[in-house]
């Protein structure tokens, strides 16, 4: 649908740049999309890990007394740090299994 009162050379010049194929662009885009997916997974798991660890700490601390509770909290904090580093390689089910194992 061309505008009739536009200069045909102008229309031709604009249409000459209609399509610009870029070599290797599809691979770049897929790599960028994968990186974005991993980043969002890390953010999601990091957001889940801290509240879950706190819940586990609340369950364990009263049964072991104050001193043991503190040690347990330190241990859980270290595990949370480990989780945040490790999550990019985890599928959801594996991550849940690890979190469940920490409670035992």
């Amino acid at each position: 649908m061309n505008e009739p009162d536009l200069d045909p050379r102008f229309v031709a010049a604009l249409r000459a740049r209609r399509s610009i194929p870029v070599e290797g662009f599809a691979d770049r885009a897929v790599t960028a999309a994968r990186r974005d997916r991993r980043r969002r997974n890390v953010i999601r798991w990091a957001g889940l890990a801290a509240p879950l660890a706190a819940c586990v700490a609340l369950l364990l601390a009263p049964a072991s007394g104050p001193a043991a509770g503190e040690a347990e909290l330190e241990h859980l904090a270290a595990l949370v740090g480990e989780l945040e580093v490790g999550v990019p390689h985890l599928e959801d089910s594996e991550g849940l299994a690890r979190l469940a194992a920490w409670g035992n």
Binding site: R17, R18, S19, I20, P21, V22, F25, A26, A29, V30
Partner: peptide
């Protein structure tokens, strides 16, 4: 991406 990127870049 292969199908649509040329027009988008244009």
């Amino acid at each position: 991406v292969h199908r649509h990127h040329p027009r988008l870049v244009g």
